[in-house]
Amino acid sequence: MIQAQLEVRNELGIHARVANRISSCCQGFSSRIEAESGTAFMDLKSVLNVMILNVKYGEKLTVAIEGEDENEAFESLKELFDNKFGEK
C-alpha cells in the first residue's frame, strides 16, 4: 500500500473541472484509491467525494492506494497534482 500527501497547488482549489480530472484519473486503475477526511477514508473514484473533500489552495490531501497497479496510480495522481491540474 502507498500512503502519501498531495498538495493542491492551483489557485482555485478543487472545483468541478478538477474533480472531473481527479476522479477520471482514479477510475483508470483497479487499485483502491482513498483520501483521508477527518476519521474516514473516501473513495476518490467518486467525483462527488472529491468535491465534498473541500480541499483548498495550499492544503494537503492524504491518499492511500492499494492494489496491483498502485505504483502507476500514484504516479499518475501525483503528476496531476504537480501540474496543478493544467491550471494556474
Binding site: A16, N20, S23, S24, D43, K45, S46, V47, L48, N49
Partner: peptide, 16 residues
C-alpha cells in the same frame, strides 16, 4: 461544457 461533463460524471459515480 465542463459542468455538463461533471453532471455526467455524477451519474457515473458508483458511490452515488
Amino acid at each position: 461544457a465542463e459542468i455538463i461533463e461533471y453532471q455526467i460524471n455524477i451519474l457515473c459515480d458508483k458511490v452515488f
